[in-house]
């Protein structure tokens, strides 16, 4: 399972192997990220889906080495291929190391959930973009400003020449998120981490932003790690999907595989809980029984077993399921993953 020592395949941009991030709290140790592995290839969009508290944001932040200060790195490796082609072992880099500062904003861009508060309220949009450009590129102020306007144009900001001198509070939520994207793209990153970028937006704006991200991704050929709790959004934008539950990736596969042949009971349950247009007849949505366990007492064995309709005593509540790999590349962490193959046809 550990391929840490092998070099990354050439198409690979980022690979996480068995990453663990823990939080020591007064009430006990919280294993927010508990052995997460996923990878992303160049120019690919990976959707990461999970409930709040499933560790998707913390994982993303440990790629940036910006996890909260009290977080403990508890092993695993994160590797990233730089623009120059060389491999960096991000997981061994320090929060403030030169390499990390060089990667952030330059090769890895990040956009956040709250467009309202994620931009500095006392600096103009232009200033904020220019600072990033000037930090990573040896350009004059005038060039940086030109670049800022170019970026604002690229994210389809109306009146970029005017907006560049505006403060965030002058802009609407959707415009702020565009500005945020412009900031993240300032130095043409090869990887963009989008942490629930559309959650705080209304549905129409969400659709616009998704469309924008998709087209920018195709235009610039960058890879996107797209974090969301919304399956519908994933279907729109992602090439592949990783489903997370309680600090673990329970299933990965292409969008089609996940949606049409889910091989993990959690994924299946999630999909059943989505309302569908034009369903046969009015039916009550299936919910997942129980609640997410509190993070201090994660159930033993498969952490989903108390809520799983297929759980089998003596197996599911005892041993952690291994990764089951299917020939098509789909991976599921369920003791009974093989059995779902036949059901999927139904």
């Amino acid at each position: 399972m550990t391929q840490t020592n092998n070099p990354l395949p050439p198409e690979r941009l980022l690979q996480l192997d068995d990453v663990n991030v823990h939080f020591p709290m007064r009430e006990g140790l919280v294993k927010a990220v508990n052995g997460v592995s996923y990878h992303i290839n160049r120019g690919e969009v990976l959707g990461i889906v999970g409930e709040s508290g499933s560790g998707k944001s913390v994982t993303a932040r440990s790629i940036m080495r910006l996890q909260p200060k009290q977080a403990l790195d508890a092993g695993g490796s994160i590797r990233f291929r730089r623009k120059s082609g060389e491999e960096v072992l991000i997981s061994s880099e320090d929060r403030q190391s030169r390499t990390m500062r060089d990667l952030r904003g330059n090769e890895i861009g990040m956009i956040f959930q709250e467009p309202m508060t994620a931009l500095s309220p006392v600096h103009t949009i232009g200033t904020q973009i220019m600072r990033t450009v000037m930090l990573h590129r040896n350009v004059s102020k005038a060039d940086a400003r030109a670049r800022a306007i170019e970026l604002l144009t690229k994210v389809q900001m109306p009146r970029p020449n005017d907006i560049v001198d505006r403060y965030p509070h002058h802009l609407s939520g959707g415009m702020r998120q565009r500005a945020m994207i412009a900031l993240a793209l300032a130095c043409d990153p090869t990887l963009l981490i989008a942490d629930e970028p559309t959650t705080a937006l209304d549905v129409t704006t969400e659709a616009q932003i998704l469309h924008l991200l998709k087209s920018l991704q195709q235009e610039l050929g960058m890879a996107i790690v797209f974090i969301t709790h919304n399956f519908g959004v994933v279907a729109d934008i992602a090439d592949r999907v990783a489903v997370m539950y309680l600090g673990r990736v329970v299933e990965t596969g292409t969008v089609d595989e996940i949606f049409y042949e889910p091989k993990h009971p959690y994924t299946q349950a999630l999909l059943r809980s989505i309302p569908k247009l034009g369903g046969q007849k009015a039916r009550r949505l299936k919910t997942i029984s129980g609640t997410v366990p509190d993070p201090f007492n994660v159930p033993p064995g498969c952490s989903f077993h108390p809520r799983c309709m297929r759980a089998v005593g003596g197996i599911c509540n005892v041993t952690t399921p291994p990764e089951v790999r299917f020939p098509n590349g789909q991976i599921s962490r369920c003791h009974f993953a093989e059995e779902f193959r036949s059901e999927a046809a139904e």
Binding site: M64, L66, Q96, M100, R101, D102, L103, R104, G105, N106, G109, M110, F112, Q113, E114, T117, A118, L119, S120, P121, V122, H123, R131, T132, L135, H136, M180, L183, A184, A186
Partner: peptide, 26 residues
Amino acid sequence: GKPYVETAYAQGFTERTVVWRYPVRI
């Protein structure tokens, strides 16, 4: 604790730059 500080870190600024340029200013 505000998100814009994280944004600033995500740009690759050093801690000192981030702290003095953004949260201190506000």
